[in-house]
Simulated assay, not measured.
Amino acid sequence: MGRHLKAGERVVKTEALHGGITAEMRRLSVATWDGGVRDLVLRTFVAPLFVERAEEMLNREAGVLSLLAGTGVAAPGPVAVDPTAAQCEYPSLLMTHLAGRTVLEDEGLEARIPLLARQLVAIHALRPAERPRQYEAWTTADAIVPPPGADAAVWAAAIDVIRKPAPPYEGRFLHRDFHPGNVLFDVPPPSLAGPRITGVVDWVQTSWGPVDLDVAHCSTNLALLHGPAWGLRFAEAYEEAGGVLASAPSERLYWRLLDALAFAAGVQWVARPWQEAGRAELTTRAVEERLDAYVTALMDALG
């Protein structure tokens, strides 16, 4: 990696960054030739499942980060990529570091929701010269196993909704993994100005598809992190920010459930980074109960 640093620079400190599910993240503090320090971030795929797909995923993210430069959407800049581990121990991507931090606590959420919505509207407004890959659904009707204690009748009805063909949609540029854990905030003391977004990270899943799916993914995360009502609120905030969702309730329900039901297979993987970030009360069981309540709320609101 040293050859990608500027002359006279050296790494003086590394720090593990928590919150990721698919990759290990480290902040590298680099001493500069003039006595200063600048930070970089290294994404490394270590788990065998993701090492197998690392070349495609890292090349895609590096390309998207290059595309985002100068668009007004704050994202890291690519520095170097080693997708096949030709030079590093594991497949890796080196990128610039963004100021700010993820904010996962309940306090102040009402002020952050409109900011998240406006940021997602801005992402969907991007018109790249080259479209990213087509979106992929992360579950199928036959693959879903409801969490323990879930309302069997509600889940059976919800699964039947996504068994139908996908509704027609107008494709847009999607982050595809947009949620509070991938958004950085500057949060000043309450007596000063309100929070602001400093950047969006983790562009590995970027794709082309319905904006409803990006809204659905953030909504599910908000429902599990903060309660089902906040999952329902985010779609309203997205429209208030100028975003346009599917017009028919049945179409909105399809995309929301396509995302929410996919969480049933991996609740423990979602809960773990939240617990590491200080939300110890979000046990696997607690998140499963919120997922069940959210699916029920969706069926009540849109079904």
Rank of each mutant, 00 (worst) to 15 (best):
residue 137 A to T: 14
residue 138 W to C: 11
residue 139 T to D: 02
residue 140 T to I: 03
residue 141 A to W: 04
residue 141 A to C: 10
residue 142 D to F: 04
residue 142 D to T: 12
residue 143 A to G: 15
residue 146 P to I: 15
residue 146 P to K: 10
residue 147 P to R: 04
residue 148 P to S: 07
residue 148 P to Q: 05
residue 148 P to V: 07
residue 149 G to E: 02
residue 150 A to G: 08
residue 150 A to L: 06
residue 151 D to E: 08
residue 151 D to G: 13
residue 152 A to E: 07
residue 154 V to E: 02
residue 155 W to P: 12
residue 157 A to T: 12
residue 157 A to L: 12
residue 157 A to Y: 02
residue 157 A to S: 14
residue 158 A to E: 08
residue 159 I to A: 04
residue 161 V to A: 13
residue 161 V to C: 07
residue 162 I to D: 00
residue 163 R to G: 15
residue 164 K to V: 13
residue 165 P to A: 12
residue 166 A to C: 14
residue 166 A to M: 09
residue 166 A to R: 09
residue 167 P to C: 07
residue 167 P to G: 06
residue 169 Y to N: 05
residue 169 Y to I: 14
residue 170 E to W: 00
residue 171 G to I: 15
residue 171 G to L: 13
residue 171 G to D: 04
residue 174 L to F: 01
residue 175 H to N: 08
residue 176 R to C: 06
residue 176 R to H: 14
residue 177 D to R: 14
residue 177 D to A: 15
residue 177 D to I: 15
residue 177 D to L: 15
residue 178 F to P: 06
residue 179 H to G: 10
residue 180 P to S: 05
residue 180 P to F: 04
residue 183 V to F: 07
residue 183 V to T: 11
residue 184 L to P: 11
residue 187 V to C: 15
residue 187 V to K: 02
residue 188 P to C: 09
residue 188 P to Y: 10
residue 189 P to R: 11
residue 189 P to G: 10
residue 190 P to T: 09
residue 191 S to D: 10
residue 193 A to R: 13
residue 194 G to N: 01
residue 195 P to T: 05
residue 195 P to F: 05
residue 197 I to M: 11
residue 197 I to G: 14
residue 201 V to F: 01
residue 202 D to S: 09
residue 203 W to E: 00
residue 206 T to R: 01
residue 208 W to S: 15
residue 209 G to R: 00
residue 210 P to K: 03
residue 210 P to F: 08
residue 210 P to A: 13
residue 211 V to E: 02
residue 211 V to L: 09
residue 212 D to S: 04
residue 213 L to I: 12
residue 218 C to Q: 11
residue 218 C to D: 10
residue 220 T to K: 03
residue 220 T to G: 02
residue 222 L to I: 07
residue 222 L to G: 15
residue 222 L to S: 13
residue 223 A to G: 10
residue 223 A to K: 08
residue 224 L to N: 10
residue 224 L to E: 11
residue 224 L to R: 08
residue 225 L to C: 14
residue 226 H to G: 03
residue 226 H to Q: 10
residue 226 H to K: 06
residue 228 P to F: 11
residue 228 P to Q: 06
residue 228 P to E: 08
residue 228 P to H: 06
residue 229 A to C: 08
residue 230 W to M: 14
residue 231 G to E: 00
residue 231 G to Q: 06
residue 232 L to W: 05
residue 232 L to R: 06
residue 233 R to A: 15
residue 233 R to T: 09
residue 234 F to S: 03
residue 235 A to N: 07
residue 236 E to K: 04
residue 237 A to S: 06
residue 240 E to Q: 13
residue 240 E to H: 06
residue 241 A to S: 11
residue 244 V to M: 00
residue 244 V to R: 09
residue 246 A to M: 03
residue 246 A to Y: 01
residue 246 A to V: 10
residue 249 P to F: 05
residue 249 P to K: 04
residue 250 S to W: 00
residue 253 L to P: 05
residue 255 W to T: 01
residue 255 W to N: 04
residue 256 R to H: 03
residue 260 A to H: 01
residue 260 A to C: 03
residue 261 L to P: 01
residue 262 A to L: 00
